[in-house]
Amino acid sequence: MTTLGFLYPGHHVAEDDFPRMEILLDAVRLVVNHTDVDEDAYTIDALTRTGAPECLAAGVAELQRAGVESVVWASSAGGFLYGWEGAHQQIAALARVAGVPASSTSFGFVHAVRELEAARVAVAATYPEPIAAQFTAFLRSAGIEVAATSAAGLASAAEAAAWDLDKVKELATAADRPEAEVVLLPDTALHTVSHVTELEELLGKPVLTGNQVTVREGLRLADRRSWSPRLGKIFAEREAPPAPVSRWGEGRERAHSGRKGRPGKQPHIGW
Rank of each mutant, 00 (worst) to 15 (best):
T50V: 08
Q90R: 06
C55D: 08
V113E: 07
G83K: 10
L185K: 05
F6E: 12
A142Y: 14
A172F: 11
R216W: 15
Q134P: 00
F138E: 03
A112M: 13
T35Q: 03
K167M: 15
G10V: 08
R120E: 05
Y82F: 15
D40M: 11
L94R: 05
L171Y: 09
A189T: 08
G67P: 07
W271I: 11
D223M: 06
V31M: 07
T2R: 14
G232S: 01
T214N: 00
V110W: 04
T192D: 09
L231R: 07
A124R: 02
L56M: 15
G210I: 13
T214R: 03
A174N: 12
L30V: 10
E217F: 01
S257F: 07
H88S: 04
G5P: 09
D40I: 10
F6A: 10
H88L: 13
P241F: 12
E145F: 01
N211H: 06
A61F: 08
G218M: 05
A41V: 09
R177N: 00
I23Y: 05
A160F: 07
D38A: 14
L231Q: 01
V13M: 13
R225L: 12
S104C: 15
V113H: 01
V245D: 10
S194D: 15
R259T: 13
T197V: 15
R29N: 06
T136I: 02
Y127N: 07
A124M: 10
A132R: 04
H256I: 07
D38H: 14
H111F: 13
A222T: 12
G83T: 11
G108M: 04
E54M: 06
A92F: 11
R114Y: 04
R252V: 15
C55I: 06
Q266P: 07
S141T: 09
I144Q: 04
G59P: 05
G264D: 12
P186R: 06
P19M: 11
T3R: 13
G153C: 04
A243Q: 15
R177T: 12
Q134G: 02
A180T: 10
P130Y: 13
T192M: 02
V100Y: 05
L116P: 06
K233Y: 00
S75F: 00
L184P: 06
W248H: 10
E217V: 00
L185F: 12
V207C: 03
V215L: 10
L24C: 02
Q90K: 08
V110S: 03
R262F: 08
T43Y: 05
Q212A: 08
Y8C: 02
T48R: 15
E217N: 10
E159P: 00
V168W: 08
V213M: 01
L190N: 03
V60M: 04
A161Y: 06
E145H: 09
S246Y: 09
P186T: 04
Q266C: 05
V100H: 03
S104V: 00
G83R: 09
T50I: 10
L203R: 07
Q212E: 10
A189P: 02
